[in-house]
Design a binder for these strands. Structure first.
Lengths: 112, 112
DNA sequence: CCGCATCCGTCGCGATACTG
DNA sequence: CAGTATCGCGACGGATGCGG
């Protein structure tokens, strides 16, 4: 395998990983996954410990990558709801695989 | 879902991600995957662009996490071979899923 | 209620030089 | 051939305060 071939082969995986690897993205996905729609402040409360800055930054990334959808309702007071897109939902099986591998591996470590 | 429940739920996925997310780990896995055993310098040549420092650091992590196996042959000149463990092999399907999702998503971006 | 601008600390990454 | 030690930079994470 040449350098180019190797790079081409892993590029899509790198791309996916870059999205998942952000410190809060996994938590955000897990929360969004269990709600069809959720408001900003509700989301902020569910993703324990996150600051406004980080939540907005993470959401921005996720939106730009087509994983999260932002819907703004022009009411008073203003209301914004977030939800997973179809693309975002397709990320869930991967998330579950990550959990499975992690569980198996952590389990084995304890067994000796 | 409480804070603890959420943390417990995602912890294994975080663990798996931390392993995969290192800058060179994906490339190293991809190379190791296509060789049963490979020597240090051969590996260094295949993982284009990596420095000795980074290769050793990455390998150390992967070994500590039970993904890579190091076998040293006491010959002259010295010879060390690296290979994936059973646990490491179980990471391959995840890697492939990451590639698939990335390809689909990148594809859609170009379609408009 | 929702989000942005700024500033700062930490850490992953890496260049270089050295060892058995 | 197969590594280790040291030093430094830059990007990401995060606290705080402002704006619509």
């Amino acid at each position: 395998m040449t350098e180019e071939e190797l790079n081409k082969a892993i590029a899509p995986a790198r791309y996916t990983l870059n999205i998942l690897a952000g410190k809060w993205n996994l938590k955000i996905l897990a929360v969004l996954c269990s709600y069809n729609d959720i408001r900003y402040n509700e989301l902020k409360r569910k993703v324990y410990g996150i600051t406004g800055t980080m939540l907005n930054q993470s959401l921005k990334e996720l939106i730009e990558n087509g994983i999260v959808q932002r819907v703004q309702y022009n009411e008073v007071p203003s209301r914004v709801e977030y939800s997973l897109t179809r693309t975002g939902l397709e990320l869930i099986p991967i998330y579950e695989q990550l959990v499975l591998w992690g569980e198996n591996h952590l389990g084995r470590k304890c067994e000796h």
